[in-house]
Design a protein around this nucleic acid. Structure first.
Lengths: 209, 209, 209, 209
DNA sequence: AATGAATGAGTGTTCATTCAT
DNA sequence: TATGAATGAACACTCATTCAT
């Protein structure tokens, strides 16, 4: 006798629902903020009763944790597989990657920066560890580039934060279909970053400071 | 005349309570976010019953609006009275002012950036108008400096946003008493900003791009 | 020395405010019901702060009691001074008086019938005693008229209630300026009441029963 | 099929709770008035937490609307199925029906007359439409009877309101077990109504007016 | 996996009332 | 007599969560 208590169909249906919960929560959290979104709203967006959410996530907090951890994991994985020309300057590589990825995933990024304080301490630590790993990539690039004389950065940790803040601010105002194409924006930001860390020996600004 | 129906003492007491409400709400909103703070928590921090808050602010939303609008007004007023040496480069002036002001008012700044979406549309418009006025200051500096050849900025609006994002990110991680003094941080950021907008004619990065 | 702590001016002003409170409360209670009207609303209608009401009425309940008792007193006094031609049939006298008075004081009447249950037991007893005195007038008229053979009423208490209910329902729908004048309405109701209590010996309805 | 996601038992339990809410609210509204009854009181009478009420009625207003609309619907349905001897005079039919129904449903009737002003405009319109349908029944009876010469009614609309006010006032004071039986009361009122609309040709009151 | 009913705590806000001034 | 600030309790309603089915 076939006593399969959880047939393949059910498992698939469940996985699909979980995914719809993630998508709905992502959108709603990004729009209104974690604290302002209720489980009822998420359920309603999914087309399900509130109780059903608890078949897929044990608490509301777990939905947030899931979104943030999987975002960070996806970000790091995407960097690993970025596939830029090997001749490209590492800083350019990072800037282009960061801008493209963050413009594509505006909601995830927004949540990742806004909802950190709504994470339980344990989940916060996990997310922050990932974030540090990501920032360390840029710090390494700056350190190695400075050592090699390609860049001039006084304090790579500070420069990392400054650059990431600058780049990450982009999706809060940039909208596709506006005056600037994604490529143009990318170039504008890349130019500013490069100059900001460029060796200063012959820079004319010396005279104007 | 002895017919003063609202004695000065009462009014003074009320104004003091209102100020304590503002202070408590500022701290709590900064810590946990507007949506996650209850009127009861604010009242408790003030040392008053919840109902008493409504003698000073008609709604919770009005507290937020008050905090944000008065922050923006204070920011613009502070810029007017900044009092830098007149010989100082305008960009340096702006960067130093912005960093100093934002490090001193970390809570206000944090709220001003985080709680925009929790403002009613009307209040949002008012705050945004102020924000645009502030950003326009930097845009003007960049435009005039570019025309004069002191800076080289392809798109002053974009550069404004990039620079402000970079600078405003600072209070989220910088803590006094750490490795770097405020002056050191200021100098580090100032250097990066200057380089980012510096004329490029002789910049060595040209060769690495 | 003249140590008059409450000068005549003050006393007059106070009496005027009390009267304005009565008027405002009357209107608001009639519109929305006692329970749904707040002291703040009354104060606001008077143009005064809520606390000031307590200089004139010790509680909200006392305002209601004041309105209802003074209405009943005024109603009974008006009946005493009605001044109808002495030859007029007593029932006609009562019906005409009742309709006229109740159409003129629609708000008071409405409250007197609707807000009985919102009176404290003690106040309720006082108002009901007055109401019974008023209804006893009609009952007497019916009893005396029955004895004299002018009317035929099986149960004067029941007839009293029936007639008063009929008449008192009038102000709930009658509006001046509509199709019927006050006089016409008065005549229509008077006719119905008279017929209802008329001796039946020759009434044709006998045959239809 | 075992895929019934909402088992009959759950739905039944819910329907029973909703019915208990209706019953409790009916009693409490009749006693104290809609505005003076809190959701907490209703919940407590039902034996449930306040929040549970909202599984059955979206707002307090909806409970009132439900009570009033279903009362009006039941009243009209009861008239359709009243089942009086076909030979009975239509007016007698209506009076007997109205008195019996209204004595049996004193709470519903009381609410239907007292809480009209607490209905939202939309709900008020719906209830009033039903009320007009009910009153139109009596108006038709009076009109047809007048045409046929059975009754003499100057203004059937006014007479309708007068008669209904008279009859509806009954449950506010009549209590079973008192001096008069229901049948006796019914007869007393019926007699008054009949006389009030009776043809006047030979009425002796003519001489007394 | 999903429902609908329920809980117990909490939400922003309003209440009648008090009181120092 | 009136104010403005405060209280303490209550308001209608929503919350995240549980659970029998």
């Amino acid at each position: 006798m076939a006593l399969d208590a959880t047939p393949a169909q059910s498992r698939t249906k469940g996985r699909e629902t979980a995914e719809r919960v993630r998508k709905a929560a992502l959108k709603l959290f990004a729009e209104a903020g974690y604290a302002a979104v209720s489980m009822r709203e998420i359920a309603s967006a999914v087309g399900v009763q509130p109780g059903a959410l608890y078949n897929h996530f044990p608490t509301k907090q777990d939905i947030l944790k899931d979104l943030m951890l999987s975002h960070m994991a996806a970000l790091l994985a995407a960097w690993e597989n970025a596939g830029f020309p090997s001749a490209m300057d590492p800083l350019e590589r990072f800037v282009r990657f960061h801008i493209r990825y963050h413009l594509q995933r505006a909601d995830e990024v927004f949540i990742a920066y806004m909802e950190l304080r709504n994470l339980d301490p344990e989940n916060f630590a996990a997310v922050e560890a990932q974030r540090n790993r990501y920032e360390a990539i840029l710090t390494s690039i700056l350190e190695e580039g400075s050592t090699a004389g390609r860049y001039a950065v006084d304090n790579p940790r500070v420069a990392t934060r400054a650059i990431i803040a600058m780049l990450t601010g982009l999706p809060t105002w940039y909208r596709e279909g506006g005056r600037l194409t994604g490529d143009e924006i990318e170039t504008l930001y890349l130019t500013m970053v490069r100059k900001a860390v460029a060796p200063v020996d012959t820079q004319s600004q010396r005279e104007t400071g």
